[in-house]
């Protein structure tokens, strides 16, 4: 079997992307990690310190989020594409403004208890 010029070009492209030591920084390296989620965080605006005061003050959810999926805006917004649903934000919220609800849309989790 002979290699055409196109084959060689294709191999070079693959080797550049896989074997080269240089990697490109990109969002979602492990895919949409939001599909790992069994519990989903939702924000109750009426309890949130930042929303109530209208000033940038608390943002503990943004600070503690391991997955960088909470924005530092008023109100804080969750990035459901990548949020893994660990619930650290809900646990650390001083006013319990974040509630974890079972993820029903996720096909791997059909029960109401969030994958138990």
């Amino acid at each position: 079997m002979t290699h055409t010029e196109e084959d060689i070009k294709f191999e070079q492209r693959v080797s550049r992307s896989i074997l080269s030591s240089r990697q490109t920084a990109a969002i979602g390296e492990a895919g949409k990690t939001g599909t790992w989620r069994t519990m989903k965080p939702i924000l109750h605006d009426e309890k949130c310190i930042v929303v109530k005061s209208g000033k940038p003050s608390c943002f503990l959810c943004w600070m503690f989020c391991p997955e960088i999926s909470v924005s530092r805006t008023i109100p804080p917004v969750f990035d459901y594409d990548y949020c893994k649903g660990c619930g650290v934000c809900a646990n650390e919220c001083p006013t319990q403004a974040i509630e974890m609800i079972p993820e029903k849309e996720n096909p791997s989790c059909e029960s109401n208890e969030g994958g138990k």
Binding site: G28, T33, P66, D81
Partner: peptide, 27 residues
Amino acid sequence: VKDLPEEEYILPGTRMCSGCGLQIAYR
């Protein structure tokens, strides 16, 4: 907290476990 920088050096969608302490430290 509001004086902490906004620029991130780890992007979302990593391979770490959900709720990993390392990711908070690394970030």
